[in-house]
Design a protein around this nucleic acid. Structure first.
Lengths: 150, 150
DNA sequence: ATGCAACTTCAAGCCAACTTGAGGTCAAGG
DNA sequence: CCTTGACCTCAAGTTGGCTTGAAGTTGCAT
């Protein structure tokens, strides 16, 4: 099986080497061996990292992601929990759509103040039609990492 | 116009008073006046906070949100930029759907290791079919705030 | 008039998720 | 053989987004 060293994984995934080391340290991913000092990753790691990226983008913490997909890539959560997470995602997708539509509307609507525009108000309020006093809503904020902007 | 004091806004939005003060401090929202020492918010603030919540959930930083909707609620970004953000959201929605489907699949698929399941691999890889080496991908991570869990 | 819950300020603290820096190892190419 | 650059470890620093604590004020119901 082909092995990748950390730079190669970084290049393929956009995740920096230091982050990869950090992920390994917290048990989110694992390297399969060492070549001298150097970590060797299997190509599976690339897939795993894609999954991790999706999880982050959905607002899950690294701990939650580790729970969902196991340090080894095998999920250890009960079905019910997984389906619940999926339901959460559905709700979040609704919110995102609403925000997207709001942004598009704002870009095009010539109203002086959007807070007065009925279309705007409707867009903003629909997403709330569920989960008003509910448990989990928000997604996390990542330092916008994939862009290696320095 | 009806005025709300901070506790009332907190009750209606699920955003804690300390967070509201913080948001005001960084210029994300504004109170319209004081009643004695106490901040008074207009009911618009509730709407604004809904918007802010959506923005956070989409992974925007508070700074970005402030840019998008202005400290005063009026967006000051050029159309093009807004449409770009909307496009980003579309991409993110695709990722979220893919993650949702992956979770559901994982919940139901009896394969021993999912990394070997072709369905799984397909689900994970499709979302990547755009933006492989691209600029912005990920969404931020917020401390799971809306749930006042203590 | 008094008590008290809900507010106030300000500084400090906290957590997740990384990044940075110093100082060191090592393997492969010239 | 020697350089070079990509890797290594470990500790400390950074950033965003809040929360907490101490110490004080105040509107309002009793």
């Amino acid at each position: 099986m082909k092995l990748l060293d950390i730079g190669e994984v970084a290049a393929r995934t956009g995740v920096s080497p230091s982050t990869l080391r950090y992920y390994e340290e917290i048990g989110l991913i694992a390297s399969v061996s060492r070549h001298g000092l150097r970590r060797q990753f299997s190509t599976e790691a690339v897939l795993q990292l894609k999954l991790i990226g999706m999880g982050k983008s959905a607002g899950f913490s690294l701990d939650e992601i580790a729970e969902m997909f196991g340090r080894d890539g095998v999920p250890n959560l009960p079905r019910l929990t997984l389906h619940q997470k999926a339901d959460d995602l559905d709700q979040q997708i609704r919110e995102l759509k609403s925000l997207r539509d709001t942004l598009r509307h704002v870009a095009d609507c010539p109203a002086p103040s959007h807070l007065e525009c009925p279309t705007f108000r409707r867009l903003v309020t629909i997403a709330g039609r569920r989960g008003v006093g509910r448990g989990r809503q928000s997604a996390p904020i990542v330092p916008r990492a994939a862009t290696p902007r320095r």
